[in-house]
């Protein structure tokens, strides 16, 4: 059975900010699923709808077998939610936060206390258990957020940008925690992220999201494998790349050429063979080349391939 089924979700903010435009995907039980996309692609809106905070304008969804619109309370009992911005009570201790969360989820007293202790240990927060949350470091606070989401042993956990705002060290530690969690608990996890590396590392399957809908879906490795060959990136220094793209397109053995700003992306079977030909052709046509790199496909390239735009520039634009 699928733990999450999302079908044609639509959401428009105000008159013309179209956050979701037919978002559709499903997650089998027990899977770690990544919604990957730049800022503003609609990831958070999707999660906020699935955790019953926001109402969609159209479309349907079920979570843990419960229809979102008809049985919101059954959905709430089945889910844990770790929001992008922490929702913990800063004036309470970590333990108090966990206990309150358990009580609101309807857990019994004894079970609540036991579970809180268990999670504090699991997330290495035992030392800070009885300290006010406002004295926590960013990483400790984020770990508490995740523990809160797990308090009542939910069937589905929603993690909205779990490592945004963490320093690289805390991020790596969080990735370890999440990977361990995904392996240990019989839990379906929906993770949103705009870090390609994070999706690659944690998600068994990703859906790449752009402008409110899924553009492609699959296992990260399969997605990368589907992009045969390698990617050649040519930096043209100061000149625009549109004209240069035509020159490169005309060469044999070039699959796909994209021009963006002063950069040119070409997908080729064998980078080592294609580069001399590309450089020669560009030189002959009067385009000076500042730099050239060859890379194996990454999720970056997958994004570029399916949306025709660079991940990083979309991410900046969406802020």
């Amino acid at each position: 059975m699928d733990a999450v089924v999302v079908s044609g979700l639509e959401k428009t903010y105000g008159k013309d900010v179209r956050a979701l435009d037919g978002m559709t995907f499903s997650i089998p039980e027990g899977q770690v699923f990544g919604l990957l996309g730049p800022n503003g692609a609609g990831k958070s809106t999707t999660v906020r709808i699935l955790v019953t905070l926001t109402r969609p304008d159209g479309g349907t969804a079920t979570v843990a077998g419960h229809d979102l619109a008809r049985e919101p309370d059954a959905v709430r009992r089945a889910i844990g939610y770790v929001p992008q911005a922490s929702g913990v009570d800063r004036e309470a201790t970590g333990r108090e936060n966990l206990v309150l969360q358990g009580r609101l989820q309807g857990m019994r007293n004894a079970d609540t206390d036991r579970r809180a202790g268990e999670l504090l240990e699991l997330f290495s927060l035992d030392e800070k258990a009885n300290a006010l949350v406002r004295t926590y470091s960013g990483g400790q606070k984020r770990r508490l957020d995740v523990a809160m989401g797990l308090m009542h042993r939910p069937q589905v956990l929603f993690l909205d940008e779990p490592t945004t705002g963490l320093d690289p060290e805390a991020r790596a530690a969080m990735w370890d925690e999440l990977a361990r969690l995904a392996a240990a608990e019989q839990l379906t996890i929906l993770l949103t992220t705009h870090y390609l590396e994070e999706a690659d590392r944690l998600a068994e399957r990703v859906a790449i999201v752009s402008r409110g809908k899924v553009v492609v879906e699959g296992a990260p490795d399969a997605l990368k494998r589907d992009l045969r060959g390698e990617l050649v990136t040519v930096d043209l220094g100061s000149s625009a790349s549109d004209g240069a793209a035509k020159v490169v397109e005309a060469l044999p053995g070039i699959d796909d050429v994209l021009a963006e700003g002063q950069r040119l992306f070409a997908r080729v079977d064998q980078g080592a063979q294609a580069v001399p030909a590309i450089l020669g052709a560009l030189d002959g046509a009067g385009f000076p080349v500042a730099a050239v790199t060859v890379s194996r496909p990454s999720l970056d390239d997958v994004y570029l391939h399916y949306t025709g735009r660079e991940f990083r520039s979309d991410d900046e634009a969406g802020k």
Binding site: V51, T52, L53, D73, R76, R77, I79, Y81, P83, A85, S86, G87, V88, D89, R90, Q101, L104, Q105, G106, M148
Partner: peptide
């Protein structure tokens, strides 16, 4: 402001 209410709203409270 601190997101506490949103967290409550995602529980059956």
């Amino acid at each position: 402001d601190r997101g506490v209410i949103e967290r409550f709203l995602t529980t059956p409270a």
